[in-house]
Simulated scan of single mutants.
Amino acid sequence: MTTRVTTKGQVTIPEEIRDRLGIGPGSEVEFLATEDGVRVVAVSENISEEEASRRFSRLLDHMAGTLDLGGMTTDEYTEWLRGPRENLDID
């Protein structure tokens, strides 16, 4: 999707993107420069708990299967992440 920048420096965010990010009238967005270009991020907004839950579920569904633990159990993976713990002074 491409859009033009107006003489006032304004752009129209396509409807598909606004819907996906939950951007509506009065919403705030942040433009973040990246090595590949720019990211548009919706700044926190007041949404219902139900909508937040739906968005979180969609995110989890999108992320499903993206982490390969190489056959490790959850406990083994946690131990690998934390590193050696034998030198901790716990009273």
Rank of each mutant, 00 (worst) to 15 (best):
G65L: 06
A42K: 09
Q10G: 00
I13C: 09
R82N: 03
T78M: 14
E79W: 10
P84W: 06
L59W: 12
A42T: 01
T78S: 11
V38M: 15
T2W: 04
V41G: 06
L69C: 11
R54N: 04
T6E: 03
N46Q: 11
L59K: 08
T6H: 01
N46I: 03
G71F: 07
L32Q: 15
I17R: 10
P84E: 13
R20C: 11
G37S: 02
T7E: 11
E16R: 13
G71Q: 06
V40E: 01
A52N: 04
H62Q: 04
E30V: 03
R39P: 02
R4C: 02
V5F: 02
R85V: 08
M63Q: 14
N46D: 14
E76I: 01
L67S: 08
A52F: 05
L32R: 15
L32K: 13
R58N: 01
T12F: 12
G9N: 07
S27L: 07
R20A: 15
R54W: 03
L32Y: 13
E35Q: 10
Y77E: 09
G9W: 07
I13R: 10
R4L: 10
I47G: 05
K8C: 05
R39F: 13
G71C: 06
T2I: 06
I23A: 01
I90W: 09
D36C: 03
R4G: 05
F56V: 04
T73A: 02
K8M: 08
G26C: 07
T7L: 08
R39I: 08
S48P: 00
D75W: 09
V29Q: 03
N87Q: 10
E28F: 10
T12N: 15
L21N: 03
D19S: 15
F31H: 02
L60T: 00
G26E: 12
P25Q: 10
E45H: 07
T2R: 08
S53R: 03
G65S: 06
R4E: 11
G9S: 09
M1E: 09
L69R: 13
E86R: 11
G83D: 05
K8H: 11
I47K: 10
M63R: 14
Q10K: 07
K8W: 04
D61K: 08
G83P: 02
D19H: 15
L59M: 12
E86C: 02
F56I: 04
T78C: 12
R58Q: 04
R55S: 01
P25T: 10
R4K: 12
T7I: 03
